[in-house]
Nucleic acid binder design. Structure first.
Lengths: 233, 233, 233, 233
DNA sequence: GATGAATGAGGCTTCATTCAT
DNA sequence: TATGAATGAAGCCTCATTCAT
């Protein structure tokens, strides 16, 4: 019996490229390095992705496809809830996806801060789509009288800022703050901060957002201790 | 009378490099491009900065020296005030500095998200110093009973996130949100959001932060109109 | 039948580099020139030798490996003979090797007169090994009572001088003396001079060194004529 | 009173250039290095010598002028003596000059092993003149019946080899043989070897060459000890 | 599928030199 | 006499890519 290994080489390239792009940036990484880390012949990169740029586009596309899949699922799964709860769940799903693909995520956010043709293309497709999703949620909330009447821009900048910070400052957190954004603790705390934000900034009347999986409570003494151990508090 | 032109060529290089690094990233920019944009011979980059890396280090150093000068001034000028007012003024000064040097700023924030030796050095010097400054303000506030007892890490990540977002998402704001973060309107609004954050998250008792220069009022109808024109609201 | 062409490009580079290094010196030759003379793309030098310095090291290593192979063979083949005969045969082999690779040889001798790290490394390996070989021969000769008790240093400097002169003064011989050190005549005469040196300086009792291949006799009238033709005598 | 310092800067350049050309070769040395070692502005090299090549030519010319001055003096001073004694004294003077300028000497010998236009020019002038001098001495010796009838070429190659070896193998002697060719001991021994060469190869009847200054005797026990100390014997 | 050879373009840096002062 | 600014050319090397196998 022959076990078909679905494209071992291709996956090795993807993993190596993600790691290197993440740490050194796209332009700071050569395909030579990628091939070496992947333990693969250089020509394979051209073979599978046509070019270095093709590899970049593949990774970004892969990132956004996964992102929207997760976000769309979250929307479907939370149709029935209050709009603030839905927003919470959507952002939580998005953030979870990002944490599961943190290397890819940091790299994509960094790359999107450039002014290139590729970036402009991404903005006019994926980011427009994302804007549509989040602004729709906002508008529904406003219409239903759940949310304050804040501008789409303010809302979106806040959301994007919230989603990107753990990744763009990942290295800073580790080196300067000695605090791992990858830890479960951080992620719980970060989500509860978002809950706070929804309540204090967005909602007209405070509501109780239920969060089954993650029953993190800021006053939970166990966690307090964990934080203390981290030497952060 | 002799007019001293302080090193025209060097400044032309600095300006060109800042613009290109800002848009294309450090690794995405060649010294040939810089020399061409600066309308200067390529060898001058070596002459003035030794190497491309030397130019990078010069710009980053220049950025942080200006940053700390502004921040230190703000601290000196606001010694007498409430600590929450002081925090507000310091952040405002920092943000003003960044807006005045927005190209340099975006570039520095992006570069700091990499894992390089240079970045590690910067973190262990400039960012440690910055951490010391902001965490001192936080601790004083906590001791005086003005601030909630939140962790240094949470505080710093919020501050860094606040300071960086307008720059890292500058292009996104323009292309996707059609909203210029460079506008006076945005900057006023952004500062008033920070005032809100201090009051709602940080301060135990809400206080009235006075801000002479910037008497921006969210309900000011003129500005509302301006926003409408921007097509954002 | 498949004819294996052992790396045509690599060999073309080697030949071109040898010729140019020989005439212009290592530092006086650019890899552009080498590539041009070899009729090969410049990047192949990096591809096959990593760097220009790598090419240099390759050539020097190649030279010494060939040199010691020849010398070791000569030693093995002449174990049974008198030590003075053995010395003669070893030096003859070495000199023959050098004449067969005269371009490489001149270049290596010239390069070894520099004070570089590479030269120091070569000295502590290859030249130490060479010293060991020749000084062993000397010591055996002294112990057996065949050779005078002269110092290792004097002996080695004489030997090195003898081996290098035809190459370091090759150009001088041609231009100033109109005498080709590459000619069979020169080489025969040079070896017979060495025979003389062994007899007059080194050996306590004059012996008759037999030299099958090279039955050159200084009084041979044919050769005298050849010399006359050369316009040297 | 103003003391005229005869061109301090020029001399600093000459010294630095000699040292660096000696160790790294002409092509291996940049004018930047020279200027730095001389602690002088780069432009001064162009100012005093027009170009790097001009500096090279200046040094080589300087070398040969000094060389011929010494040789001519030796010839004048020893007109009355036996021709073999004269030869001895001339070579001794030449060698002394070379030892006094050993840096320059090694560098010149190395450079002359190249095939450049400059070298060809030097050969057709200085080296032709040198050839004339030494071959005249040889011919006079032959005519007078003092010397064997050997070819000019053989004679000149031997002489050149003798004059150059201590310099071209200077580094080799130090590193491999642990023997300083700069020492007075070496130079004495080397001259007495030359005396031997004259007697055994060149002269028909052995003569006693008198050498006032340098009464070195191979059997002198003091020197034997000195040699022993050097660890060479 | 995967590879090693080979390439042209362009990377950064250093070169020797010039010129106004 | 001496210098700092500035330059064009060339240095070596690495880049991403192609192609025959």
């Amino acid at each position: 019996m022959i076990v078909v290994e679905t494209n071992k080489t291709k996956n090795k390239i993807i993993d190596a490229a993600t790691a290197l792009f993440n740490n050194q940036g796209y332009d700071g990484t050569s395909i030579r390095e990628i091939a070496k880390l992947a333990d693969v012949n250089i020509a394979n990169i051209s073979y599978y992705f046509n070019s270095k740029k093709g590899l970049l586009e593949y990774l970004i596309t892969k990132y956004f496809e996964g992102y929207f899949q997760r976000v769309d699922e979250a929307i479907s799964d939370n149709r029935e809830k209050h709009i603030s709860e839905m927003l919470y769940c959507v952002i939580k799903s998005a953030l979870n996806y990002q944490f599961e693909n943190s290397g890819l995520t940091r790299f994509v956010y960094r790359e999107l801060s450039l002014d290139t043709i590729l970036v402009r293309e991404i903005m006019s497709t994926y980011l427009m789509r994302e804007k549509y999703i989040y602004s729709s949620i906002l508008n529904v909330g406003i219409k239903r009288g759940e949310f304050e009447d804040i501008s789409t821009s303010s809302f979106l900048i806040s959301v994007k800022s919230f989603l990107s910070t753990p990744f763009l400052f990942q290295h800073y957190s580790q080196e300067v703050l000695q605090w791992s954004v990858q830890s479960h603790l951080f992620q719980s705390k970060y989500m509860s901060d978002f809950k706070l934000w929804i309540n204090r900034y967005l909602c007209i009347n405070r509501i109780q957002i239920k969060d089954e999986e993650n029953s993190y409570d800021v006053n939970d003494s166990t966690l307090e201790n964990e934080i203390a151990v981290c030497g952060v508090v």
